Computed example of a mutant assay.
Amino acid sequence: MDAQEIRKSAALEKKHWWYAERRGLVRRLVRPLPAGRALDVGCGGGGNTGVLRDLGWDVTGIEYSPVAAGIARGRGLKVVRGDAQCLPVADASMDLVMSTDAWEHIEDDKAVARETARVLRPGGRALVAVPCSMALWSGHDVALGHLRRYERADLAALLEGAGLKVVDISSWNVLLRPVARLRRKNNDSESEMEEVHPVLNAGLRAAVATERFLPVQRLPGISLVARAVKR
């Protein structure tokens, strides 16, 4: 992702429906866990890093982009510049490693999975969110610097191959997948991350929030969310 796209995403992060609901998802999944030491790998502007901090975690963001790292630091977060393929962290030192929408940007995602497993203590948790299904590939992915979108079986194999035991892989943003697919059909080169009218923004947030109460987590969505544990 280029610097302009990073700054645009950071500016949208506080109110945009997608970022807001993703923070809510992270909060719901992490809240039941006892707080400890955490990494947010590929933390971007730090929206989800802040969620972990507010839940009582001793969290450090790892970010490759100097622009994104600077934005996150400006928000009062602890951030280290580093490569997800070679984390600057000791073996078995973390209770939680989280990566939200980062792995799809990295050429060697197997190395990222191995590094995630390496730095987790036995019994430590991984939380990974990635874009789902190459059927949705479009100019949006190109604009954001994605190298791939993931199928459920491929993500499970990636995590298991690194020595992590998959607890669950669920779909997220299921109800809006038909809308995304229709919109992306004719999208050659543009990111969808843009300012949304407040009324539409509220409606989209409500659509995603509704999924919490519906049995749709096994249906195809826009994202996949994996939870795994270090063996």
Rank of each mutant, 00 (worst) to 15 (best):
H146S: 10
I106M: 07
A126H: 04
A113P: 04
R37W: 03
G70S: 09
A20L: 14
W57V: 10
P122Y: 02
R53C: 11
C43D: 06
A113N: 08
R152H: 12
G45H: 07
W103I: 15
W103M: 13
W137F: 06
N201I: 05
P178I: 07
G45N: 03
G36W: 06
N186R: 12
D83L: 01
P131G: 06
V112C: 15
G24T: 10
A126L: 09
L120H: 05
A226Y: 08
E211Q: 11
R114G: 03
V167H: 01
P198W: 12
D54E: 15
H140N: 13
M1T: 11
A90L: 03
I169K: 10
S93N: 04
W17G: 03
R22L: 14
V97N: 06
A202L: 09
G74D: 07
S133F: 11
A207P: 01
A10D: 13
K110A: 15
P88Q: 04
K230A: 15
V229Q: 11
S93A: 12
R181Q: 15
L176E: 01
T116H: 08
K78W: 00
L127E: 05
V229G: 08
Q85R: 15
A135H: 09
A117E: 13
A126V: 05
A226S: 14
A143N: 09
Q217N: 13
M134G: 15
T100M: 14
G50W: 02
L200S: 06
R73V: 07
A117K: 05
L127F: 13
G124I: 02
L176P: 01
A228I: 05
I6L: 06
V128S: 02
D154G: 12
K185N: 00
S171R: 09
S223V: 07
R31E: 15
K110R: 14
G70I: 03
R152P: 11
R22S: 14
R22K: 14
G74L: 09
A72E: 04
V97W: 03
A84E: 02
